[in-house]
Design a protein around this nucleic acid. Sequence first.
DNA 1: ATTAATTCTATAAAATTAGTAGGGTTTAAA
DNA 2: TTTAAACCCTACTAATTTTATAGAATTAAT
Lengths: 137, 137
Amino acid sequence: MLSHKAKYALKALLYLAQQEETHISRTIEIAEAASIPKKFLEQILLDLKRGHFVGSKQGKFGGYYLLKSKNDITLADIHRLFDGAIALLPCASLNFYERCSDCVDESECLLRHGLITIREETLKAMQGITIASLVKK
Amino acid sequence: MLSHKAKYALKALLYLAQQEETHISRTIEIAEAASIPKKFLEQILLDLKRGHFVGSKQGKFGGYYLLKSKNDITLADIHRLFDGAIALLPCASLNFYERCSDCVDESECLLRHGLITIREETLKAMQGITIASLVKK
DNA sequence: ATTAATTCTATAAAATTAGTAGGGTTTAAA
DNA sequence: TTTAAACCCTACTAATTTTATAGAATTAAT
């Protein structure tokens, strides 16, 4: 399941993607349009900025805008940024690999093999969903 | 990600699947073989029993055994029993459907459509992984 | 200077997770 | 019929994560 943070991030990105290219959106504007608590959204937008998905303009008349193309922001990206690994266990993860503390011999683990299969399929599916594909409905 | 409970459940089921058909496994035996805290495993086995995946024999020389065929226990089943919905949001779930409180009009939600696609693909993949397929390596 | 916006850090309440504790109940063997 | 060995059940707890909120600092345009 997605955290609220990830869900709100996606909704915010969808909002930005639907504005004109040159438009700069204020946090409060996004928050109201997408029913997201404003102060919470502030943090989320900063995370998206640190992840180089959005850019910002500070000061009066400032706000946020898409930095990457809608076609280059995938569900997998946002999941990883806010909710971490796509895989079902850290030992089956590419980007968030961690050994299981209760694992005796990883290469012999019956579970890991199956979970790597799942990760591959889920990842492919999540990479197929982009902000652009969602906006196009 | 899977919870420890779901992971332990899968490891316990894998252990049971590798025993002879007639063998009854004690909790302590599974716990030691699979490095699972015994008292925690007790709860998990009870949940598996309530889910009709395993059967039990009480009293002295009692224990647990597989109730369903290894081919009929899927990763999707165990995920749902311990970790709930397969879908990334409750509004995109079949078995754990819930409306989003921040959603104005669900039929118009751009996110939901994509998440239903993901759920369908993930579910198919997870239903393809059975205890039998994991044991066969 | 003033105003309006982002940025940053700290805090807090609520929920979830990962167990632990301590019995109660059932069964079978001695 | 007593006893031991196992499952069964409920409650509790400590730690972590999640979901925010608060308030001040910084930045930029007028």
